[in-house]
């Protein structure tokens, strides 16, 4: 599926095909900004802005989206997983625009979920986790987990492998959530200290994985 960069959040919410194929996008979009911001704000604008606590980037990471970037010189494609470079910083070059988001078809029977804790004033995530879990023959065949709000950029957790081939019992999910924060240099600000933010990220990861698994068929 391809989404034009200037598609508003409202249009994402109103799109039945999108909701059918990627219900997670609609679910997360409902938490972005507020009613007025969703009417005017666009998915491409939000992604290119690269706020390190935005809700949509981790969704793009678990879905393994590809971003199409265009300048006068031509087009290039960059995986979402290589797009974010730092707070409000991306691989976009001067004169280059994000014009399209390409989403691969989700794995068959995949369940997806997002769990987050909002900063009370801005609504941005203190910590948020997006998860995608695909089940085949009664065991987990694929698991993806990504975070926002925790560090300088959204990031994909490398350590979901222990879940593959298991039924995803709570202890295993808990261990993956725990391992995902190993070595992470978490943000520390007036809204959440480092230790609390790491804790919230683990809780969000566990909740997102658990819910994604429950939604997988």
């Amino acid at each position: 599926m391809r989404i034009g960069a200037t598609t508003t959040y409202r249009e994402l919410l109103d799109s039945k095909p999108l909701r059918a194929k990627y219900p997670l996008i609609a679910e997360v979009t409902e938490h972005i900004g507020d009613l007025q911001v969703r009417n005017a704000g666009t998915i491409g604008g939000g992604l290119a802005h690269a706020d390190p606590a935005a809700d949509m980037p981790p969704v793009m990471l678990v879905l393994d989206a590809t971003f199409v970037l265009q300048s006068k010189g031509g087009k290039r494609s960059v995986p979402a997983r290589k797009f974010f470079k730092g707070p409000f910083t991306t691989v976009l070059k001067p004169g280059e625009l994000l014009v399209e988001i390409r989403l691969p078809g989700p794995p068959k029977g995949a369940g997806m979920a997002y769990a987050s804790f909002e900063q009370a004033a801005s609504g941005y995530a203190l910590a948020g986790a997006a998860a995608l879990v695909a089940v085949a023959k009664g065991v987990i065949a694929r698991a993806e987990l990504a975070f926002t709000g925790v560090a300088e950029t959204p990031f994909l957790a490398p350590a979901t492998k222990p879940l593959i081939g298991t039924k995803g019992d709570p202890d295993a999910i808990g261990r993956v959530a725990e391992a995902a924060m190993a070595g992470v240099e978490a943000n520390d600000d007036i809204h959440a200290g480092r230790e609390y933010r790491l804790h919230l990220a683990r809780v969000a990861a566990r909740r997102a994985l658990t819910e994604a698994l429950a939604r997988a068929t």
Binding site: R10, G33, D34, L35, Q36, V37, N39, A40, A121, S122
Partner: peptide, 16 residues
């Protein structure tokens, strides 16, 4: 863009 006091309808939809 937090308070919403400036909300108007643009083509029928609320925007700030």
């Amino acid at each position: 863009s937090q308070c919403g006091a400036c909300t108007v309808l643009l083509d029928g939809r609320a925007v700030k």
